[in-house]
């Protein structure tokens, strides 16, 4: 465990038990998942049982106990996206990457997730790769979008 890396996060907080979720959010952002050893340390420092951390990590969708891919694809399945073919878009990405929702591709490049609504309903169907939005994504646009991220490295 890289103590300094975790310490940098913990030092932002007072160490009260209500800081637990913000600390886990920071760990998720920094590590791309919640590593077990770090969670044990957090439990010790905040004097909360590890089981409470586990319940939070598995209740909220943003947390993951497994490492996520380099790029995170979020396909919106909000109502408008649902009506305008969000599921077809998801199927297309899923079959191109060979992974189901909630999984990471073998090369570690992409994780595929769905999201309840991204709030860009006027441009449905919408998807996000990391922090970038893609509007009115018809199935034929998928290869081009994925390629951008595959080529960069």
């Amino acid at each position: 465990m890289d103590v300094a890396r975790l310490e940098a996060i913990l030092s932002r907080y007072e160490g009260e038990s209500y800081d637990l979720i913000p600390i886990l959010q920071d760990i998720q952002d920094e590590y791309n998942f919640l590593p077990k050893d770090e969670l044990k340390e957090v439990a010790k420092r905040l004097s909360v049982p590890l089981s409470r951390i586990y319940s939070i990590a598995t209740f909220y969708k943003m947390f993951s106990l497994m490492p996520k891919g380099e790029h995170q694809i979020k396909v919106c399945l909000g109502t408008t996206c649902h009506l305008k073919g969000g599921q077809r878009l998801l199927d297309s990405i899923s079959s191109r990457l060979g992974i189901e929702v909630g999984y990471t591709s073998k090369d570690g490049k992409f994780s595929l997730e769905t999201v309840g609504c991204l709030g860009s309903c006027a441009q449905a169907p919408v998807m996000m790769v990391d922090d970038k939005y893609y509007a009115r994504v018809t199935v034929d646009k998928v290869p081009k979008i994925l390629k951008q991220y595959q080529q960069y490295q």
Binding site: Y18, L20, I21, I56, F59, Y60, K61, M62, F63, G116
Partner: peptide, 21 residues
């Protein structure tokens, strides 16, 4: 942290307090 139920006020409060929603 990604839980629809946290829009409900008592769940939202639980979430701020550091619990599941």
């Amino acid at each position: 942290s990604g839980a629809f139920v946290c829009g409900e006020e008592t769940a939202l409060i639980a979430s701020i307090e550091g619990f599941i929603g």
